[in-house]
Design a protein around this nucleic acid. Sequence first.
DNA 1: TAGTGGTCTAGACCACGCA
DNA 2: GCGTGGTCTAGACCACTAG
Lengths: 238, 238
Amino acid sequence: MNRAIPIHRRIRAAIEDKILSGDWPPGTRIPAETELAATYNCARMTVNKALTELAADGLIERRRKSGSVVKRPVLQSAVLEIHDIKAEVEAAGFAYRYRVEKRKVRNATRPDCERLQLEAPVSVLALSCLHLADDRPFCWEDRLISLSAVPQAHDASFTHQSPGAWLIDEVPWSAAEHRISAVAADASLSALQLAPNTPCLAIERRTWNAEEPVTHVRLIYPGDAHALVARFAPSKAG
Amino acid sequence: MNRAIPIHRRIRAAIEDKILSGDWPPGTRIPAETELAATYNCARMTVNKALTELAADGLIERRRKSGSVVKRPVLQSAVLEIHDIKAEVEAAGFAYRYRVEKRKVRNATRPDCERLQLEAPVSVLALSCLHLADDRPFCWEDRLISLSAVPQAHDASFTHQSPGAWLIDEVPWSAAEHRISAVAADASLSALQLAPNTPCLAIERRTWNAEEPVTHVRLIYPGDAHALVARFAPSKAG
DNA sequence: TAGTGGTCTAGACCACGCA
DNA sequence: GCGTGGTCTAGACCACTAG
């Protein structure tokens, strides 16, 4: 019975079309699962799968008894992927290099605790790195790693792998919080060789693993040399 | 049997735990659906639902014959939601106001075509707005609306609703592309009353509906007054 | 109370892709 | 081949909730 496209996909695509074209504006009631099952001559479970996916994607809202309705669009949302700096530089066709400019183990200071959102002051590793594209400054990195969460960072050299890439390999999975803002270049960014007050994009990222703070990083990109791009489409097609 | 948590959720949570804790590092093979069904004493369809969700969230990768394996973490990704400016201002506890500073209908110039990614020069509506929080400049908006896609914009007054909110109501659903960068304040932003060279966060958004360009907007926020925050967690719980 | 979605079952057949 | 996931079925019972 499944020539090419699965039934649940076809049902989903058909409903998506109705919504995206405006035929079914927000608030429109979608036929009940049993109705759709009759229409498409399939089992209710198959319809259920299609509608569940549409709900997960935020196109419809499902309620018992009253049925499924088309949702109002989320104002603006996007899946933003902040890539590995090395991959980013190389994708742009430049040669990537980086060097660690500063490295220090210390007991977390008060600012350190704030950056990592630590309760108690643990031992931390503070790093500063300069990332280069074709030997020209590309990005400045200030990083703090909790040695309580990642004790093995103490002895890592970071000569072959930048701290960010190294951490991905060491800490299995994590939750993260990003903060994106604009700042003016100052003396602390002298390695970027920018004119004073050059606008820069600042990306801060705080990472946890199983509730435990792992790292905080602040990446500074010269504003004219970098932009974050994100896309959003209601139909993610799986 | 299902007093509290559905079986598929429990299976999913159990596997998530294994992955997040590092017990099952990337590359680990996950038991086959039939095995898990036996373990949890449930039907294979129930296990399938759990694993399908995990795959959709990017925690595992599923392959026929060889089975499901734990994926390497995506380097950094986040769901970024760019909110309605009005909601944003009011959420911060300020009174929101805005005014249209400029409004002009014209045939698309070459820069207009680039901004909207138009093939042919159609008629467009160009708008500039100032958004205020407690009567202080908060955000500057430069917008272009394709009158080919949204002809009714020609006669919209935008007195009660900002162009962004109005569009949400008029254009049913849309895909969007965002571009975030840092720029320096210049004369064109005089309405924001900033010192020259103040760093600003620039958010550009291009919107389509069914392949047709709808609008392009450029929002400028003083860098010290604004930041975008995004969260990412592997377990989105739905 | 009745309609709707949420979940689950115990089968089934097929397509894919490693051996 | 043959094990795996992908899909589908024709039922079932329950929870929620609008009328």
